[in-house]
Design a protein around this nucleic acid. Structure first.
Ligand SMILES: [Mn+2]
Ligand SMILES: [Mn+2]
Ligand SMILES: [Mn+2]
Ligand SMILES: [Mn+2]
Lengths: 147, 147
DNA sequence: ATGAAAATGTAGCCTTGGCTACACTTGGTT
DNA sequence: AACCAAGTGTAGCCAAGGCTACATTTTCAT
């Protein structure tokens, strides 16, 4: 034989595929808020305060960009902030941050468990975490527990 | 004891964290082109042609949105298309589609292997695939081979 | 107390990726 | 040959998420 057998291509049903892509887009649009919420919670927990400049530096964006995102967090009821006074999370924001942090850790742990090198795991988890459903998260937990 | 021990929070170094977030943003901006390339290749392979309306229906977006994305594919040298004549992939586009399809399959297979239910695996893979680095992909391959 | 540096906020610009509405081809039926 | 439906393209709108430049407020050292 000259080449490996190319696996046959089969397309999902059209409505199924459209639904999957749509959900992936929805997950993506939530990603930014999730990262901000998680980071703000971490900064508050470790340093005591979450200032726009700190947030911006950690995310690698300009402070203007961070301030606009914080405005969106406020608009969506996840954070509070008064001018020149730092950012805090609402109940909803804290709750979101908690779930996001758990997901983040589980994704990293699963990647490590299947043999992904540490830094790749930490890097890839930052994107992957936003696309892990509850069902998948549960499977990750079971897999990690049973070994 | 009353509550589970809350794992201690430690933040990555600032430049490290900024680099990770930046890479995740870059990966995200490539995601749309990857999905289009993969889908166009699949349509060409199975149906013989990839028309804007088909692409739009499968992605769950309007045909106008699809046409604009196809324009971007052309701009970036991944596709060719003449008015009213359907879309084709360039060498670069075919190559991208091939890599994306492989990644997509490996991600689904890995999720199944760790116990994720079929539909959740297919769904989550659609987003996860865009954040899987070569190092992680290699680890997935090894994991799947050794069992 | 004051002056400089740092942080914060605002304005205006850009690209991406959505959408709807409308105009124009194309291709099959009659 | 003509018509009509489907497909295609274009225009114009919007929100998100980037940026730079500039104005304002705080904070900190002197
Ligand atoms: Mn993230
Ligand atoms: Mn995270
Ligand atoms: Mn995808
Ligand atoms: Mn895919």
């Amino acid at each position: 034989m000259t080449t490996a057998e190319p696996a046959p291509i089969e397309l999902p049903e059209e409505p199924t595929q459209a639904r999957r892509f749509g959900k992936a887009r929805t997950a993506q649009s939530a990603a930014l808020l999730e990262d901000y919420a998680e980071l703000i919670a971490d900064l508050l927990a470790t340093g005591g305060e979450a200032r726009p400049t700190d947030i911006a530096r950690r995310l690698g964006v300009s402070h203007a960009t961070a301030i606009k995102a914080i405005a969106r967090l406020k608009r969506e009821g996840l954070a509070t902030a008064r001018p020149y006074r730092g950012v805090f999370l609402t109940e909803a924001g804290e709750h979101l941050a908690g779930r996001v942090r758990l997901r983040h850790r589980l994704v990293v742990d699963l990647l490590l468990a299947v043999g992904v090198p540490r830094e790749a795991a930490e890097q890839d988890a930052e994107g992957i975490e936003h696309h892990v459903s509850d069902a998948t998260l549960a499977a990750f937990s079971r897999f990690l527990a049973g070994r």
